[in-house]
Design a protein around this nucleic acid. Sequence first.
DNA 1: ACCACATACATCGTGTTACTATGTATATAG
DNA 2: CTATATACATAGTAACACGATGTATGTGGT
Lengths: 120, 120
Amino acid sequence: MSVDRELMKGSTSILILSLLSREDMYGYMLTQRLRQGSGDVFEMKEGTLYPMLHALENEGAVESYWAEAAGRGRKYYRLTPSGRALLEKKKEEWRVYSRAVDKIVGTARRRLAGGEPCEG
Amino acid sequence: MSVDRELMKGSTSILILSLLSREDMYGYMLTQRLRQGSGDVFEMKEGTLYPMLHALENEGAVESYWAEAAGRGRKYYRLTPSGRALLEKKKEEWRVYSRAVDKIVGTARRRLAGGEPCEG
DNA sequence: ACCACATACATCGTGTTACTATGTATATAG
DNA sequence: CTATATACATAGTAACACGATGTATGTGGT
């Protein structure tokens, strides 16, 4: 990740699960969407991504299937119901955690009802 | 920390620096304030705290001095100007990072001008 | 035809980080 | 006088993400 490693730890799985909750994706696609979707903040490396995908598959959070595209095989990952539940749990943990950091650090924010981005 | 370890990684130093930016504190006091200030979310262990304080001192981010209280010595830590600059840097990193996670995960928020907490 | 680059999957070894366990010592409450 | 809270500290361990590396195919340029 291009953000200082120290802050990046631990949230890898929530990012992967979130992206897969909207659409089935293959590994390389995940790295691209993660980069674009975060505004070039996240740059997940293969050495991080593939082991994580395999671990999530072992846990039963995702399932994989091969599909052909452009004359080449791609390994797609699909979120399972169990993975969807895991995502919800991790989202709640992220809310609790980031709010607690904000309380200590003093960067206050207010949660919105919807899910619109807070860019401009 | 009582929050799932996976989410806790990396933000230890910003929490310590933030607390010290408001008041000189000794180790044990830091663990208590961190717990109270986060609403029982963070429980920093001595095995995490003391090595981190020593590392921050080696970097020149904090300075320590002994003081007597209740007939016993306490080792206080004080933020140096360099530590204050480090804190500002880490705060900015936290803003970038947490905003990027929110973009991906879809838990949108809006930053406030002031520093008021967003509890109820 | 050939080369460089992007795409696409994967694993192994390494370094960082936080934790568990443990040790020391004093004050306070029962 | 014993248990608990306070208060500092370190050594060993486990988890996690990364860097390095390997394989292979498609595409664009010359």
